[in-house]
């Protein structure tokens, strides 16, 4: 079937199989391998993308369900550059193997979009669907809090 959607700011029209997963479509058809797959059952969050600004598990969606919507993957967050949140991840050691990182960063962006100054418990709650097996989440939570505070400060 044909579908049109926007991915990382670009309008795309394409032929897709009605049974292909959104994560598979983004990875295999569009080559956006920053979208990771860790379980394909909505349990790990490695495949998180932003759908109209909201974090979703792209492995749980069929590609055609994104018709007419706007998707942001890690590749579309800041081009080849690194934004303040990604910078905070690097500086605070919130990245180890990096496999969960794209999904984690996008989940955090989704949170900060909805709630620009989350408390620690809110951050932890928002990231509860994203599993990191390396970091114990401590530095991830710190990085998100730091980026949130800096963004709030910059706005004032």
């Amino acid at each position: 079937m044909r579908m049109s959607l926007k991915v990382n700011g670009q309008a795309i029209e394409t032929e897709i199989s009605p049974i292909s997963r959104l994560s598979g479509f983004l990875r295999d058809v569009l080559g956006l391998t920053g979208v990771k797959e860790g379980c394909c059952e909505g349990e790990c969050g490695a495949c998180t993308v932003l759908l109209d600004g909201q974090p979703v598990d792209s492995c749980l969606m069929l590609a055609f369900q994104a018709t007419g919507r706007e998707i942001t993957t890690i590749e579309g967050l800041c081009g080849s550059g690194v934004n303040d949140l990604q910078q905070a991840f690097l500086k605070m050691g919130a990245v180890q193997c990096g496999y969960c990182t794209p999904g984690m960063v996008l989940a955090a962006e989704g949170l900060l979009h909805a709630n620009p100054s989350p408390g620690e418990a809110e951050i932890r709650h928002a990231l509860a669907g994203n599993i990191c097996r390396c970091t114990g989440f401590e530095t991830i939570v710190q990085a998100v809090a730091t980026a949130a505070a800096a963004r709030q400060g910059a706005e004032r």
Binding site: T33, V82, V95
Partner: peptide, 24 residues
């Protein structure tokens, strides 16, 4: 020193290619 990962930028930008990401 608290030096950030030497391969960190590739990890936070999703540019790092793991095995399943490689196109052969």
């Amino acid at each position: 020193r608290r030096v950030p990962l030497v391969d960190g930028v590739a990890k936070v930008t999703g540019a790092l290619r793991f095995t399943a990401d490689l196109h052969v």
